[in-house]
């Protein structure tokens, strides 16, 4: 009797501790959001979203910054997503277990913990100088893609590992090849997990400043990368890839360090825009995950 009373008490106190832990995180987030919203919401306007940087805080805007962030994030996804997933599939489904794959595995896990500025230096040496891509959108996106690749590979492998082996055996038993098994059984089932990992990785990349400053992302850019859609054949214009760019965190960082107080409100408003983009990005990924989850019927 006493034992069970103690157990009940432990049960309740664990619930309380868990609740407190959750509320702490939420509370801090709430304070941060209120602070940023009170400081920045007054500055949020159409003019702010459609103007270029200026020395006068009230005229300055973040058009080049949010457009740059949108370009970089889209491209980073396009590069890192297929590469990461394919590498993950190879390591998990095809790779033989020997010392060599063991070595690769350890290295990938280590890479996930390397400080981001190191990736900036790699990007500067490899993409900007050796491949002569210059300080361009494509060099920035490739650098961030490298940065998040290990996280995507690791989460892909975790997701693949969580698929019961019996599913694969059933598929083989029906005469599927290995590729068919992966393509039609394993990958769709693992997709929700892979997407969760990708959300986390992309959210890390969107806030990065150090590697982009290292490869030479700029602060003052008063033009946009060329539009990807053109009116003439072949209707795709990739000039934008080689344009110079800036991103939201760099613009925010610059405003925070300026002496004029008016720039602080701009920085807060910039943070609101950055948060909104992150939320939108996550919302799309969660919607995708939901769609895939509905498809699984075992």
């Amino acid at each position: 009797m006493r034992k069970s009373a103690l157990n009940k008490w432990t049960d309740r106190s664990f619930f309380a501790v868990g609740l407190i832990a959750t509320l702490t995180g939420l509370g801090v987030l709430l304070i941060l959001l209120t602070d940023v919203l009170t400081d920045g919401s007054g500055r949020l306007s159409w003019q702010f979203l459609t103007s270029y940087p200026s020395r006068r805080p009230e005229e300055a805007g973040i058009l080049s910054a949010w457009a740059g962030t949108a370009w970089i994030m889209a491209l980073t996804g396009v590069i890192a997503f297929p590469l990461g997933i394919m590498a993950g599939i190879h390591l998990e489904e095809y790779g033989k277990k020997n010392w060599f794959t063991g070595l690769i595995e350890i290295n990938i896990a280590n890479l996930a913990g390397v400080p981001s500025i190191i990736y900036g230096l790699l990007g500067l040496g490899l993409f900007v100088r050796t491949l002569a891509l210059g300080r361009s959108v494509i060099a920035g996106a490739a650098t961030l893609a490298l940065l998040i690749l290990p996280i995507i590979i690791l989460s892909t492998r975790e997701a693949l590992r969580s698929i019961p082996f019996s599913i694969r055996e059933a598929s083989y038993a029906l005469g599927s090849t290995k590729w068919q098994t992966i393509r039609y059984q394993v990958l769709p089932a693992a997709m929700p997990g892979i997407l969760t990992g990708t959300i986390l990785a992309m959210s890390r990349a969107i806030g990065e400043t150090a590697p982009l400053i290292t490869i030479g992302a700029l602060t003052y850019v008063a033009f946009l990368p060329a539009s990807p859609v053109s009116a003439e054949f072949p209707f795709i214009n990739l000039n934008g890839l080689s344009d110079a760019f800036t991103v939201l965190p760099i613009q925010i960082f610059n405003w925070v360090s300026r002496p004029q107080k008016g720039f602080f409100a701009n920085a807060a408003a910039g943070i609101i825009v950055l948060l909104t983009i992150t939320f939108l990005m996550n919302a799309v990924a969660i919607w995708l995950r939901h769609r895939y989850q509905k498809k699984i019927r075992w």
Binding site: I213, T214, G216, T219, V221, A244, N254
Partner: peptide, 8 residues
């Protein structure tokens, strides 16, 4: 003329 400025 496009002008770009960085802060490294």
């Amino acid at each position: 003329i496009k002008v770009t400025a960085g802060i490294s």
